[in-house]
Design a protein around this nucleic acid. Structure first.
Length: 553
RNA sequence: UGGGUCGUCGCCAAGCGGUAAGGCACGGGGUUUUGAUCUCCGCAUACCAAGGUUCGAAUCCUUGCGACCCAGCCA
C-alpha cells in the first residue's frame, strides 16, 4: 500500500476505540473483520467497509479477518467467494485470517443446544404465516406460539432430529425465547435455525439445518475474538439481539457492535439484488462491466485501488444518511491518474490532414514527454509525417466565440510538434469535411513562432504510423441521482451509458500496452486497456474525462 | 399512532462549554506546447427550530419539526 497516504481523519468509531484503549478494554487489542456474504460481487459500498475495517486494524496494530457469512447456501457460491478474495486483495488489503461462518457450524449447534437446555430456545412447528401473524405489528405486541411452552426435553429431542434430517424443510424452526411483547421486533422470539436441504458451497450436504444471521454473526465474532464488530446502520435494531445471544451463552468474549451509515453514491445503486438483476437481465455486460459500481467494474474501467481508498477516506464515517456526489469519486480518480498515468495521443474521431509543404515520404521521430510534470517518467518517440489525423472536433468551419483550435486560415500547435495553418477544406459530395490541406512552419519545433501568438494546442497521430483501436466511452449508468426512488430502477438507466467508437487511431507506442495499463490520452481523458484488446485491434475503456473548466457554449 | 437512529456551507465532514478545520463543488486571478495539471484568492456572525442554563452554547437541558431504519424460516 502506498505509504504517503495521510493519516485517516477522525471519526466516531476511532473515538470509541481510542477510549477503549485508554480504559484497557480488550487488553489493548483491536480485532475487526470484514464479513461479506458470498452472494454477489463486492461494490463501492463494500469498499467503504473494507477500508474502514482493514484500515482500523492497521492503524491500531491490530488484525482484520476476512470472514464469509455463508449461512444461506441458497444464494451463495464459490464464484462469489473467489471474486471477493480477488477484489479485497486488489484493493490492497491482506486479511489476518480467512474464516467462514460455516467453519463454526458445529460450535453454533452446540451453543444452540445449550440455549435449549437453559430454556432459552424452543422448537416451533408454526408455519411462516403463523409466525408472522403472531409476531404482532410495529405498534402491537406479539403473541406466544403454542409451542413456546414445549419442554426442554422435547425441544432437545426435536432439535437433534432436525439436524438428523427427520423433518421436511420448513417443518420446524428453532427460536430464541426472548420477549414476544418487546417493542423491538427483532426480540420477539427470532428464528435462529431453519431446515433447508440445500447443498452448501463449503460444507456440502453435511447439514440440513442452517443458522440465521443474527445468531451466527455475534457468535462468529466472539469465536474469532473480534473486539469491534463494525456494521451498517440497518443492524442497529439487531444489536440488542446480538448482545442477548452473547449474554446468554458462555463465549470467549463479547465484541462491541458499532454501526455506521452505508455509502450512498449519486447516480449509482449498491443493492446486490439489483446489481445482480442488471447482470442477469443483461443491462450491462457482466459484474465487471465498467459501468458497474462493483470493485471489478471500477477496476476494468481503469480506476486504481489507491483512488478507491482515497475516496473512502474522504467521504468520512458517520451515522448520518449521506449522499455522496459523483464528483468526489471522479476527483479521486483524476487526482491519482493525473499523477501516475503516462500521457499518450489518441484520435477518437479522425480527420485527415495533409501537410502540403512537408516532404513526401519523410518521417521525423519527435521526442515527447511521457508526463509533463514528471520528467523522470521519460520520453518517447512519436513519428511525424506528411499525413496526420486530428480530432474532428478540433476543426471548426464556423467557430464559436473563443474557439482555440483550428479554423480555416488559422494556426494551431500540434502537441509536441509543429504549428500548422489550415489552407483549404476538402469536402465530399454531401458537403462533409473529409480532409484539411495545411502547411507547417518548420521553425516552430520546440519554440514559439516569432511575431504571432498561436492560441490552441491539439493532439494528433501520424496516419501511417498509428494503430487502429476501439474506444469505449462510458458514462454514468443512471440518468437520475437516486435510481432507487423510481418505482422501477431500470427506468432510470441512462440509454447513453456506453458509446463504442471504432476506427479510432492511437499512437504506435501504445502497441505493447498490457490490459489494465492506464493512460491519459491528452486532452480527452483517462483510458485503460481492456482485456478484450488484441494484437490486431486494441480496445480502450474511458475511465473518466479530463475536467473541463472552460465555459462551453 | 411502537422501537431505534440522525439533523454543522450546494454535497461530504471536523468540532465534545471558550467564541465555526478540511475536502468536493462553485466564483475570480496567475502559470502552462493538454481549454488538463499547478498556483493564488473568495466561499456558514453561523451550526433543524424555539425556549432555557451559563460570563460564555454547535456543544448542556426542555419542547417541537424534519429525515432514515425495523413486522424474512435474507444478510
Amino acid at each position: 500500500m502506498s505509504t504517503n497516504e495521510a493519516q485517516s481523519p477522525a471519526n466516531f468509531i476511532r473515538h470509541i476505540i481510542d477510549n477503549d484503549l485508554k480504559n484497557h478494554k480488550n487488553n489493548g487489542n483491536v480485532v475487526t473483520r470484514f464479513p461479506p456474504e458470498p452472494n454477489g460481487y463486492l461494490h463501492i459500498g463494500h469498499a467503504k467497509s473494507i477500508c474502514l475495517n482493514f484500515g482500523i486494524a492497521a492503524e491500531y496494530n491490530g488484525a482484520c479477518n476476512l470472514r464469509f457469512d455463508d449461512t444461506n447456501p441458497e444464494k451463495e457460491s464459490d464464484e462469489y467467494v473467489q471474486a471477493i478474495m480477488r477484489d479485497v486483495e486488489w484493493l490492497g488489503f491482506q486479511w489476518h485470517e480467512l474464516r467462514h461462518a460455516s467453519d463454526y457450524f458445529e460450535q453454533l449447534y452446540d451453543y444452540a443446544v445449550q440455549l435449549i437446555k437453559d430454556g432459552k430456545a424452543y422448537v416451533d412447528s408454526s408455519t411462516p404465516e403463523q409466525i408472522r401473524a403472531y409476531r404482532g405489528t410495529l405498534t402491537e405486541p406479539g403473541k406466544a406460539s403454542p409451542d413456546r411452552s414445549r419442554s426442554i426435553e422435547e425441544n432437545l429431542d426435536l432439535f437433534t432430529r432436525m439436524r438428523a434430517g427427520e423433518f421436511a424443510d420448513g417443518h420446524y424452526v428453532l427460536r430464541a425465547k426472548i420477549d414476544m411483547a418487546s417493542p423491538n421486533i427483532n426480540m420477539r422470539d427470532p428464528t435462529i435455525y431453519r431446515i433447508r436441504r440445500v447443498h452448501h458451497q463449503r460444507t456440502g450436504d453435511k447439514w440440513c439445518i442452517y443458522p440465521m444471521y443474527d445468531y451466527t454473526h455475534c457468535l462468529s465474532d466472539a469465536i474469532e475474538g473480534i473486539t469491534h464488530s463494525i456494521c451498517t446502520l440497518e443492524f442497529e435494531d439487531h444489536r440488542p439481539l446480538y448482545d442477548w445471544v452473547l449474554d446468554e451463552l458462555e463465549t470467549p468474549c463479547h465484541p462491541q457492535q458499532i454501526e455506521f451509515a452505508r455509502l450512498q453514491l449519486e447516480y449509482t445503486i449498491v443493492s446486490k439484488r439489483k446489481l445482480n438483476q442488471l447482470v442477469t437481465e443483461k443491462h450491462v455486460n457482466g459484474w465487471d462491466d465498467p459501468r458497474m459500481p462493483t470493485i471489478a467494474g471500477l477496476r476494468r474501467a481503469g480506476v486504481t485501488p489507491a483512488a478507491i481508498r482515497d475516496f473512502c477516506e474522504r467521504i468520512g464515517v458517520t451515522k448520518k444518511d449521506a449522499w455522496i456526489e459523483m464528483a468526489v469519486l471522479e476527483n479521486c480518480i483524476r487526482e491519482d491518474l493525473n499523477e501516475n498515468a503516462l500521457r499518450a495521443m489518441a484520435v477518437l474521431q479522425p480527420l485527415r490532414v495533409v501537410i502540403g509543404n512537408y516532404p513526401d515520404g519523410q518521417t521525423e521521430a519527435l521526442e515527447v514527454s511521457n508526463h509533463p510534470q514528471r520528467p523522470e517518467l521519460g520520453k518517447r518517440q512519436t513519428p511525424f509525417s506528411k499525413v496526420i489525423l486530428i480530432e474532428q472536433d478540433d476543426f471548426a468551419e464556423n467557430p464559436p466565440p473563443k474557439y482555440k483550435r483550428l479554423i480555416q486560415g488559422g494556426e494551431v500547435r500540434l502537441r509536441g510538434s509543429y504549428v500548422i495553418r489550415c489552407d483549404e477544406v476538402v469536402k465530399d459530395a454531401e458537403g462533409r469535411i473529409i480532409e484539411l490541406r495545411c502547411s507547417y512552419d518548420p521553425d516552430t519545433l520546440g519554440k514559439n513562432p516569432e511575431g504571432r501568438k498561436v492560441k490552441g494546442v491539439i493532439h494528433w497521430v501520424s496516419e501511417a504510423h498509428s494503430l487502429t483501436a476501439e474506444v469505449r466511452l462510458y458514462n454514468r449508468l443512471f440518468r437520475l441521482p437516486n435510481p432507487d426512488n423510481e418505482d422501477n430502477f431500470l427506468t432510470a438507466i441512462n440509454p447513453d451509458s456506453l458509446e463504442i467508437l471504432n476506427g479510432c487511431r492511437v499512437e504506435a507506442s501504445l502497441a505493447e500496452a498490457a490490459p489494465e495499463s492506464r493512460y491519459q490520452f491528452e486532452r480527452t481523458g483517462y483510458f485503460c486497456v481492456d482485456k478484450d484488446s488484441t494484437d490486431s485491434k486494441m480496445v480502450f475503456n474511458r475511465t473518466v474525462t479530463l475536467r473541463e473548466n472552460w465555459v462551453k457554449d
